[in-house]
Design a protein around this nucleic acid. Structure first.
Lengths: 210, 210
DNA sequence: TAGATTGTTAATCGATTAACAATC
DNA sequence: TAGATTGTTAATCGATTAACAATC
């Protein structure tokens, strides 16, 4: 991670895609690839591939191209996927439980270590191989466990109170499925938002204005 | 929708957010707002607000600002949220069922009219107020129902076959939760991708490279 | 009318693409 | 060495911001 200062978000958001394609090529047994060929597969320009990769270092070799497995590992390191950041999830509704059960956190740089809900009927029930805890136990849990990230799967209206508690507990990294605007409240928080309904409205726009 | 030719995707992807904020302001009983105030609330520049809105028409009034309710309705129309596009969902796993149950399709311009799965153990079970159909009934269903959009909640490996069938049935609009690259296969398809794992990896990057 | 605020043009900034010299 | 392909600089393109004249 030599020269990774002020990399633009445009580049950062492309990294996971590079990682996916390289992982696949690697599994297919491809061991070298040129920026041209990779660009073709990914439907982008070769220029962009080379520019993007060069933000992080000279991983290629002139006249040869890039080693697939090496490049894949480099990007894995750049993304920080071996960190195993400790995550907790709040709000075990439809989406919360789908996120908890479906995603392979380990491959994505995280470990899901607890799920919380404020509905006493849900407390004690299983989600995947975890058991739902009561939201009131948040402080106790964080006293005995290191928590890096909170995944918020609760509706906008109910976010503020638990968010404030999480922030006070020192948690400043959020994967946010709600429409609550975390960054506006806490400027130093790292937030990735998943706005499914915005995405679906965009599809609606594009269908309507073809 | 007067001058909506080649609006950039940057602008389009901001529309749902304007719509959300305006809906909220409207519910709060605010009836007029200036680009300055709206920009402040939304944490963007007033210039951007005015530029964005003016892609679609002059909705404001000099010296006064914008009528909240009118602007909200304009954007609703621009997004096409009253169309009620007929959607079907394929793959009723963790995510598929969360999407089917959790989202308020009606408010987002769609109606979810059927869910399909290829797992015979799931066929016949309820999801929300629908019943899971067998994927083999796709053609029959589409013969008797108009379908605008398919929501794909199936893993990458299993997408291609049903995608080809859907395309042959005339469906060219997709909300894609898989990593399968639909646009590369069908250039005329309208596709919105939800790549949760890419999003989580981006969070990982940002935590790692603070 | 005077004040406010838009609509729109012009200036800036950033991101993408093209080109090519460096080099394996 | 000759051919290929990178790393990197320069050119282009697009998006954002600033400025201000138009106008309610």
């Amino acid at each position: 991670m030599s020269k990774n200062d002020n990399i633009s978000m445009s580049v950062i958001r492309r990294l996971p895609r590079y990682y996916r394609f390289l992982t696949e090529l690697n599994e297919q047994g491809v061991d070298r690839i040129s920026s041209n060929k990779l660009a073709e597969i990914m439907n982008v320009t070769a220029s962009q591939v080379r520019q993007d990769l060069n933000c992080f270092g000279g991983f290629g070799q002139q006249g040869y191209g890039y080693s697939v497995s090496q490049l894949k590992e480099e990007i894995k390191g750049i993304l920080g996927l071996n960190h195993g950041y400790q995550a907790i999830l709040l709000g075990v509704g439809n989406f919360g439980s789908a996120v908890a059960k479906h995603l392979d956190f380990h491959k994505l740089g995280f470990e899901l270590i607890a799920c919380f809900d404020n509905d006493s009927k849900k407390v004690g029930l299983p989600v995947g191989n975890l058991t739902i805890s009561d939201e009131s136990e948040l402080e106790g849990f964080c006293a005995s466990h290191h928590v890096d990230t909170a995944i918020l799967c609760i509706p906008k209206e109910n976010v503020e109170a638990p968010l404030d508690r999480l922030y006070r507990l020192g948690i400043k990294s959020f994967w946010n499925f709600s429409h609550y605007d975390i960054s506006t409240r806490y400027h130093d928080a790292v937030v990735e938002n998943v706005h499914l309904s915005d995405n679906l409205m965009t599809l609606c726009y594009r269908m309507t204005n073809l």
